[in-house]
C-alpha cells in the first residue's frame, strides 16, 4: 500500500470520488488482497462510528434491565400451594380473556413497523440544550415537544441530518405524513449514512396513509445489505408483495 492508496481510500470514504472512480476502487478491492484488507478495515471503522450512539444506548438499557433478572434471589425454586394454584388458574382465565380481547385488536401494520431507535445526539450541549430536550421528549413519546426542540436545533444547523430525520419521525407520529416526507425525501436522495433510514421512513409514511402501493415502491428502493433491508422484505411480504 502506497500513500496514494490511502489518499484514494480517504477520498472514497469522504464521498469525494466521481462514480466511475468509485466503481474502479471497488473492483480493485475485489482483486487486490492488500487493498481489500485496508478497504474492509475502513468500512469497519465507519460502521463502528455510525453505530456508536445506538451501541451506547443498548449498553445503558441492558445495564438497567439486567439487575432485575440477576439478583441473588432470582429464580428461587417455587413451592406451589393450593392457594397459588387457584391464583394461577384465575390468572390463566384473565390471560385467556386478554388474548381473546387483544386478538380482535391487532395493531396496524404501521404500528408494528414504526419502531424507532432512540434519538441520541453525539454532541451534547448544556443540561437544558435543545438536543437534550429533544432526546428526552422523544424518549418519552412527547412528539410535539421533541419536534419543537428539533426545530430549534435545525434553525442553528439546517443541515443536521439526524435532527432532520427525527423531525420527520415526530411529524409521522403526530399524524402529518406529508410533512414528514418533506423531511425524509432529501436525505433519502443523498448518500449519507442515514439514507437507508430515510428511505425506510418514507415507506412507513405511506403505510401511515394506508397507501400500500407507494409504500411497496419505496421499500423496493432499499438494496440488499442496507439497514432495514430485512424489515423491508418482511413488510413487503405482509403487504403481499
Amino acid at each position: 500500500m502506497q500513500q496514494q492508496d490511502f489518499d484514494l481510500l480517504d477520498d472514497y470514504f469522504n464521498g469525494l470520488l466521481p462514480p466511475e472512480s468509485e466503481q474502479a476502487l471497488r473492483e480493485r478491492a475485489a482483486a487486490d488482497p492488500d487493498f481489500a484488507r485496508e478497504f474492509a478495515l475502513r468500512e469497519r471503522m465507519q460502521r463502528w462510528l455510525h453505530r456508536e450512539p445506538v451501541r451506547q444506548a443498548v449498553a445503558k438499557n441492558l445495564a438497567e434491565i439486567g439487575p432485575d433478572y440477576f439478583t441473588a434471589n432470582a429464580a428461587r425454586p417455587w413451592r406451589v400451594s393450593w392457594k397459588r394454584w387457584a391464583l394461577l388458574a384465575a390468572s390463566f382465565a384473565v390471560f385467556a380473556f386478554a388474548v381473546w380481547f387483544f386478538a380482535l385488536r391487532q395493531p396496524s401494520l404501521y404500528h408494528r413497523y414504526a419502531q424507532h431507535a432512540p434519538l441520541q445526539f453525539t454532541e451534547r450541549g448544556a443540561g437544558d440544550s435543545p438536543e437534550t430536550r429533544a432526546e428526552r421528549a422523544f424518549r418519552e413519546g412527547r412528539y410535539e415537544e421533541a419536534l419543537a426542540a428539533l426545530r430549534t436545533v435545525l434553525t442553528d444547523k439546517p443541515g443536521h441530518l439526524t435532527a432532520r430525520l427525527y423531525e420527520g419521525i415526530c411529524l409521522l407520529e403526530l399524524g402529518r405524513p406529508a410533512e414528514a416526507r418533506a423531511a425524509f425525501a432529501p436525505i433519502a436522495e443523498g448518500t449519507s449514512a442515514l439514507q437507508a433510514d430515510a428511505l425506510w421512513y418514507l415507506a412507513i409514511s405511506y403505510l401511515r396513509e394506508n397507501d400500500p402501493t407507494r409504500c411497496r415502491e419505496t421499500l423496493l428502493r432499499l438494496q440488499a445489505g442496507q439497514e432495514h433491508y430485512q424489515q423491508a422484505q418482511e413488510l413487503l411480504r405482509a403487504l403481499g408483495r
Partner: peptide, 9 residues
C-alpha cells in the same frame, strides 16, 4: 469523527 458520523455536513 463522531460529529461527522452523526450527520453534520
Amino acid at each position: 469523527l463522531r460529529l461527522l458520523s452523526d450527520g453534520l455536513t
